[in-house]
Amino acid sequence: MDTKALLAELYDVVGLGVSALSGSGFDAFITVEQNSARKALEFLHRKGFNVLADLTCVDYLRYGFDERPLPPSHPHRLRRWPSPPKPPRRFKLVYRLLELDPAEGLARGRLAVHVWATGKEAGPPSVMDLWPNADWLEREVWDMFGIRFSGRPDIKRILLYEEFVGHPLRKDYPIDKRQPLIGPKEGAARTVVSDEPLRPDPS
């Protein structure tokens, strides 16, 4: 598919809020404003992008910052590259679309749709009805980054358990953070942790 012609059509449908095409070939991507994301994805689905190959998120909170302490005797760290530009918002969702020809089995086109989100208010609308596998992918993004997709209130965690506190792939979640112990589903959680867990209860 001619991506350029497709984009010209997309401008007509969505209007402002769609960036120019970046990258080339199968690495092409566009950036879409959050409130026109649903419209743009609907349009691309209609235009033949029949597979949602992936949906993921990147937390840009510490992008380009260097916070690791240096040892006192260490010379200044080698910087081979200039600092990257500041991202417009904290989170970037990446929808990786694939146009697959079922008869030939060849990928006709690939397009990544980038959507920036703040993470505080509800994120872009869910696309579960367009690509049903978005259900699990959105659950994973919620689980790992805490971005809620509007239009699906009952979202639940997928890889972690419901009692987990926080969203671990956020950059402000420390890697060595411990989680509280949880009890059985019914009944109170165990609050007192015995230091002699192997000794049987005398009573």
Binding site: N50, V51, L52, A53, D54, L100, P102, E104, G105, L106, A107, W131, P132, N133
Partner: peptide
């Protein structure tokens, strides 16, 4: 299979020669 983004032998067994 396509709607759910399935690839690999599972998709190929359904008749889509995507590799």
């Amino acid at each position: 299979a396509l709607a759910y983004g399935v690839t690999g032998p599972v998709l190929r067994s359904a008749g889509v020669p995507y590799d």
